[in-house]
């Protein structure tokens, strides 16, 4: 406890002095803690988004095919009015909505079984079973579905076992995306069910509600925030996907495919303008969810 001790071990002394300074002025500690993440958020997320918006106003030199900083609103005009592209946007929103609906329909009973019905041991293995596919590569899973969806004489598993396959196209894309993003819906719904007190289910039954009615009037309404959280994943991941359509989509194209093609054209400014579509849609989705009160219980 003396100055000699501090002097002989300078690093420890320095650490102690910093410790004291932080204790005396909590703001310093707060600054030290949040500066890095906030900088990351500002530079990487907000910064790149701003760059994207700025780029959308740049133009292409017709002669050299190079991007110039000459400002124009032409790209935005094209992106938001050209019917071919708008139709692809609508198709993508339709696919993302269908995937989200399917994920909800599958995840609700699945998570309910895992959280409220299964024994502890079965529950653990089922959670592992849900999580395990997340460890496998995206491409591997997409190509596995390609093999399964294959039609014709060389038909895949679906064709030979079920005698039916939707083949490559919009249905194949929806099926594959539903498989890929299902865990992102199951996990939040499962977590929501875990938090749901068992006595609420008892109470509904006690008041005369049969199981299906308890589920509909008590469980589902209380799971809305969890479903909303899951749907943000399934919806935005589906909206931005461009590899699955390539692998199992046949001629079906989503927003991502057009953006990729435009980017490689190369027309970076127009691609940037296209990219604003999903940004606008996801922001609108978030606003709608907040208006619906989906996140109220998270506050």
């Amino acid at each position: 406890m003396s100055t000699t001790a501090t002097g002989s071990v300078p690093i420890a002394g320095l650490a102690r002095r910093i410790g004291r300074a932080v204790t005396r002025r909590p703001v310093l500690g707060l600054a030290a803690t949040v500066t890095a993440p906030v900088a990351w958020l500002l530079v990487v997320y907000i910064g790149s988004l701003l760059l994207l918006i700025v780029t959308a106003f740049f133009s292409i030199d017709g002669f050299t095919q190079r991007t110039t900083t000459e400002l124009t609103a032409g790209n935005l005009d094209t992106a938001f009015t050209e019917w071919v592209f708008v139709r692809t946007v609508l198709r993508s929103v339709g696919v993302a909505t269908a995937v989200t609906m399917l994920c909800i329909a599958i995840a609700l009973p699945m998570a309910f079984y895992i959280a409220k019905v299964a024994t502890t041991r079965v529950r653990r293995s089922l959670i592992v079973a849900v999580l395990l596919p997340l460890w496998a590569g995206y491409l591997v899973k997409a190509y596995a579905w390609r093999a399964m969806l294959q039609g014709g004489d060389q038909g895949g598993v679906l064709k030979s076992w079920l005698g039916f396959t939707p083949g490559f196209g919009i249905a194949g894309v929806i099926v594959t995306l539903t498989y890929l993003w299902l865990p992102y819906m199951v996990l939040p719904v499962y977590a929501g069910l875990e938090r749901l007190p068992a006595s609420l289910l008892d109470a509904a039954g006690d008041l005369g509600a049969r199981p299906w009615r308890s589920f509909r009037t008590v469980v589902v309404p209380l799971l809305v925030p969890s479903i909303a959280a899951g749907s943000l994943f399934t919806f935005s991941l589906s909206l931005g996907d461009y590899i699955t359509p390539k692998v199992v989509g046949g001629t079906t194209q989503l927003i991502g495919n057009l953006i990729e093609r435009t980017l490689l054209a190369p027309n970076q400014p127009l691609a940037a303008a296209y990219t604003l579509w999903p940004v606008v849609i996801v922001v609108a989705y978030l606003v709608a969810m907040t208006r619906l009160g989906a996140f109220e219980s998270l506050k």
């Binding site: 007190p197 006595s199 609420l200 008892d202 109470a203 509904a204 006690d206 008041l207 008590v218 309404p221 209380l222």
Partner: peptide, 12 residues
């Protein structure tokens, strides 16, 4: 009918 220990009122 039952009155539960934690009341089990439906919060929504």
């Amino acid at each position: 009918n039952t009155v539960f220990q934690d009341y089990a009122l439906f919060p929504h």
